[in-house]
Structure formats: C-alpha cells, structure tokens
C-alpha cells in the first residue's frame, strides 16, 4: 500500500482539503432523509476544486468517492422504507431489518472515516480511507 504521509501542503491547502470532509458531514445533517444531498454537495465541491493543487484535488476526490460508496445502499434502503410505510406495497420482515441495520452500520463507519479524515488532513497528514484511498489514486494524477 502506498503511504504518502508527507505530501507538502500549505496551511490553506490543508484547510480546503479538510473542508471537503466537513462539508459532506454538514450536508448529511442538512439533507438527512434524502440520500443524495451529501453526494450532490460533494460533487459540487469536487467540481469547484478540479483545478486546485494535488493535495486538495486528491482529498476532494476521496470525499466524493466515500459518499459514492454508500449512496447506492442508502437509496435502496430509502425507497424500501418508502414502499413499506407510504405505499404499503411490502411489509416489515427479517430481510428488511437486516438490510437497514447493515446500512446503518455502513453509514456509521463511513461517518467515522470522514471525521478522522477531516481531523488528520487539517493537521497536514495525507490520510487514506480504507480501500477508497486506493481508488482515489487511480482517478487523481499528480500533474494537473
């Protein structure tokens, strides 16, 4: 595993990179019942920073990918819940409960990862979220 703990970064770069993670947390709070609000917010942040320095680009991409990793599961859980409680097409069964618990655990893990990333990146550490960091390397190239 590549471990770039010492990518040189200035104070402002650390601030912007860390802001990407904090913003996705704020967007989760603001748009909680709807699963795509945080993804849209991360996407806007990513697009705004696509010409920024390598450090900022890398972390805004990692923030976007971490949101993308949960949005599919969240959307499925959201519409399954809607179909049960609003349209009464299905009923609560063991499969539904197991899926919802799994989605909650996944979201909590993603939230913890994002919080750790926000804190570490603010200190200038090039923090890589498990697995997502590897995917980010594929998408972000050092030269702009």
């Amino acid at each position: 595993m590549k471990n770039d703990l010492h990518i040189p970064s200035t104070e402002h770069e650390r601030e912007y990179a860390s802001n990407g993670y904090i913003m996705s947390l704020v967007a989760v709070m603001a748009g909680l019942p709807i699963p795509v609000v945080n993804l849209i917010a991360s996407l806007i942040f990513f697009l705004a920073n696509r010409k920024a320095t390598y450090f900022v680009r890398w972390h805004s991409t990692q923030a976007l990918l971490s949101q993308l990793s949960v949005v599919g599961f969240n959307s499925a859980a959201f519409w399954w819940t809607i179909s049960i409680f609003f349209f009464h097409e299905k009923e609560v069964n063991n499969d539904y409960m197991a899926y919802v618990i799994a989605v909650i655990v996944l979201n909590v893990l993603e939230l913890i990862g994002t919080m750790i990333a926000a804190v570490r990146v603010r200190k200038g550490i090039h923090y890589r979220i498990f697995i997502i960091g590897e995917f980010t390397d594929i998408f972000v190239k050092e030269s702009n």
Partner: peptide, 15 residues
C-alpha cells in the same frame, strides 16, 4: 441551489 449550493459555498467562498 435549493440550499445545497449555499452549504457548499460556505466552504468554498474564502478560497
């Protein structure tokens, strides 16, 4: 942007 852009801009506007 239905509130989403405003939230993102809080973090982008200084830059």
């Amino acid at each position: 942007g239905c509130g989403i852009w405003s939230i993102v801009d809080l973090f982008l506007i200084m830059g």
